[in-house]
């Protein structure tokens, strides 16, 4: 009986130890070895677009089109579009991990072919180019949890907010990316390149993800380097209204609540 109990404790200790060592292995400490390995992986997987020095000037950039937006990220001094942090802030490590893992629809492939440790090594390496990562501590915003689901009244309220917040000016009355600012060519990115407004009727093309939580995050953080602003201030304390807007935008593609 005692023997069995001891075995149980021993097994528990082994499992706990394995979990701890796995967690340690997944996100390695930022040291010389990590950076060297990150560099090796980066130069194989990332440099084609982002450039050997991380300035977004890799040779594949010429195929993308030198004057086509979006350009590959410049890791040396650009801001970041896809974050869970406030407008103007750097992304968290988890944000970077998410982008590398999931890719960016229509723009960047998903790198699930790299194991998690390799992805973290690449993140450590690309962060090493920008000293702001040492000086700042990006903190994710607090996102409200989702209500049970969309209601017709909520969607109607979301439509009202869509107009009030001028979403239609860029995304168009029906969300097809054909608002007057977009069709007139007034939308520019941080490189002053002309960009299109996202077609909200086609979630497969949404760069920051198409789930309701992804959409909510985009509304809260904005997309730095593009004309898409953050509405976190507007919805402070009005989580229900924010979800109404999310449901309405999703309703434009008939996929509300996913």
């Amino acid at each position: 009986m005692m023997h069995a109990k001891h075995l149980k404790y021993a097994a528990l200790l082994i499992v706990t130890g394995l979990c701890a060592s796995t967690a340690q292995a997944v996100k390695p400490a930022t040291n010389r070895d990590t950076l060297m390995e990150g560099r090796r992986i980066y130069e194989q997987a990332c440099a084609w677009c982002h450039g050997i020095g991380g300035e977004g000037d890799g040779p594949a950039g010429w195929f993308i089109g030198r004057y086509t937006s979006p350009r590959p990220r410049n890791f040396v001094n650009d801001g970041y579009k896809l974050r869970s942090t406030a407008s103007g802030e750097l992304p968290t490590d988890q944000n970077l991990f998410r982008v590398i893992t999931q890719g960016i629809p229509g723009v960047m492939p998903a790198y699930r072919s790299l194991n998690e440790r390799e992805r973290w090594q690449v993140i450590a390496y690309l962060k090493s180019w920008n000293s702001a990562f040492e000086e700042e501590t990006p903190a994710p915003l607090t996102f409200p949890s989702a209500p049970p689901g969309p209601t017709e009244a909520g969607i109607q309220h979301g439509r009202h907010l869509y107009v009030k917040l001028d979403c239609r000016v860029c995304h168009g009355d029906n969300g097809e990316g054909d608002g007057p600012e977009a069709t007139a060519g007034h939308l520019r990115d941080a490189d002053n390149l002309r960009i299109r407004a996202t077609n909200l009727t086609d979630p497969s093309a949404w760069k920051n993800g198409a789930s309701s939580h992804d959409l909510l995050r985009t509304l809260m953080t904005g997309l730095d380097g593009t004309p898409m602003p953050s509405y976190a201030n507007e919805f402070d304390g009005q989580e229900e209204a924010l979800w109404d807007l999310v449901w309405y935008i999703q309703s434009l593609s008939g996929q509300q609540g996913r």
């Binding site: 001094n77 650009d78 407008s87 103007g88 702001a132 009030k164 917040l165 730095d224 953050s230 507007e234």
Partner: peptide, 28 residues
């Protein structure tokens, strides 16, 4: 929309309905 940049990096890009305000610290 108030969109302020510091070089290629966004300092802040926020949408403001009428009569509203927001705060950000200068970071560098």
């Amino acid at each position: 929309n108030t969109h302020i940049s510091m070089g290629p990096r966004t300092f802040v890009n926020v949408g403001f309905p009428q009569a509203d305000r927001s705060g950000n610290p200068l970071s560098s």
